[in-house]
Simulated assay, not measured.
Amino acid sequence: MADNVSTSWSVSTRTRGSLVSILLILAVVAFASATPLFAPRAVIQDLFSILTMLVLAQCWNLLAGYAGLVSVGQQAFVGFGAYAMFGGVSLLGMDPMAAIVLGGLAALALSIPTAFFVFRLQGAYFAIGTWVIAEIVRLSLAQWKALGGGTGTSLPAGAARDMVGVRFVADLLGVRGPQATDIVCYWLALLLAMLTIGSIYKLLRSKQGLGLAAVRDNREAARSVGVDPLWTKSFVYLVAALATGLTGALIYVQKARISPDAAFSVPDWTAYVIFIVVIGGIGTIEGPIVGVIVFYILQNLLADYGSWYLLILGLIGILIMLFAPRGLWGLFTDRTGIQLFPVRRILAGRPKIKTNEGVPDG
């Protein structure tokens, strides 16, 4: 009888809670999409900030958590994308919606020569190299007199209010131009967050995702099984630059004013992002989501404490790294086994009984 039993093996990323996770995510997206219909303007602005920081955190997590590329120069793509958007609107007369796309493409173009240099560096030298390049880009754009030089500039009057979709939203919801602009920017941020998370999730579930994990864990072992470490890391680096540039351009459409120091701020666009990923859980899609919520709560609770605010954030980050190295989501997952975006492959086997039909006896 034992000879008639075989095992059929399959690989899956689904867990027992996959269906519940999908329904929960769909409910959250539906609620978030409808929020501008009843929420005040201040809430919409706060949610916009949360969503844009979430996209930046997911991009940095993709680099550091899945590709092993610890960059401290992502502000280069935020600022460059934002300045490209300003150039498109102020100098070329583009609609801000199209200029946002221009900002993302400009950041992508910047990442190509940047990758050529920084990929020659390893470890801490890579991190320092990305920061140095960001400073070079900041100092270069500070010389761009047409966009205000070192003091910065503002979008032309009414440019944001004339953006595609703003007048339609204003008429549909019965709100004024500035509030309609905030709503359109919020919906764009929500769409960008959904596309970013969905694309990263799809990438990690693919063969390329397996190759990315292999490169992160051991470059030589990955190369021995046919994975090209340079191409894999370059692809992730370029994709993260594109999404970061789009986000930077969108942020400064909503702000409507830019300066080199603000657009290339290390604390705002890199330090806070790293904090979000670390406390939430590096190497997981859920980690940045948890981290950005915790960061927003801490930001509101501690905003009145001046310089103590940064010290407290640093202390919280250190404590979490010591007592929960995998972040808050990692701690939660270890105790419950719940995953909203499961990417770990599970090998499952099912017994199969062979029949002797059609086989002659003897």
Rank of each mutant, 00 (worst) to 15 (best):
S90H: 05
P96Y: 05
L105Y: 08
F119D: 07
A82H: 10
F119Y: 09
F86Q: 03
F117M: 15
L105M: 09
A106S: 09
G104K: 09
A82D: 14
R120L: 11
L121D: 00
G104F: 07
A84M: 07
P113K: 14
G103H: 06
F86L: 05
S111W: 01
G88M: 06
V118T: 10
D95A: 01
Q122D: 04
V101A: 15
L91T: 03
L110C: 12
F116V: 15
S111I: 11
L105G: 09
L102M: 13
F80L: 11
I112Q: 12
F117Y: 07
A107F: 03
A82V: 11
G88I: 01
F86S: 05
M94A: 11
V101H: 09
I112H: 14
A98I: 05
F116C: 12
A106E: 04
P113I: 10
F119G: 12
A115E: 10
F117S: 12
L108Q: 07
D95C: 02
V89N: 02
L110W: 10
A82I: 10
A107I: 08
T114H: 11
R120F: 04
G93R: 00
P96R: 09
V101D: 09
M85E: 00
P113G: 09
V101T: 14
G81W: 05
G93F: 01
F80K: 15
F117V: 15
L121H: 08
R120W: 02
V118Y: 08
F86H: 04
A107P: 11
P96H: 04
A109C: 15
G104T: 07
F80G: 15
A106I: 07
S90N: 12
G104I: 14
A99D: 06
M94G: 00
T114G: 11
V89A: 10
A99E: 01
A98K: 01
A107Q: 03
L108N: 06
T114K: 06
A99Q: 12
A107N: 04
G104P: 00
P96G: 04
Q122H: 12
A106G: 06
F116M: 13
Q122C: 10
L108A: 07
T114R: 09
G104E: 05
V101P: 02
A99M: 09
A106L: 07
V118P: 00
L92W: 10
P113R: 15
A84G: 10
A84S: 09
F80H: 14
G104H: 06
L102N: 11
L102G: 15
G93I: 00
L110K: 05
L110G: 09
Y83F: 13
G88T: 02
P113L: 13
P96E: 03
A106W: 01
L110Y: 07
L105N: 05
S90M: 11
A107W: 01
G93S: 03
V101I: 15
G104D: 01
F116L: 15
V118N: 04
I100V: 13
A99F: 14
G103T: 06
A115G: 03
F80S: 12
L108I: 13
L108P: 11
G103I: 07
D95Y: 01
F80T: 14
G103W: 03
G87C: 12
L105H: 02
D95V: 00
S111Y: 02
P96S: 03
G81Q: 02
A84T: 10
G88H: 05
G93W: 00
L121A: 11
S90C: 12
I100W: 01
T114A: 14
V101S: 11
Q122T: 15
M97F: 08
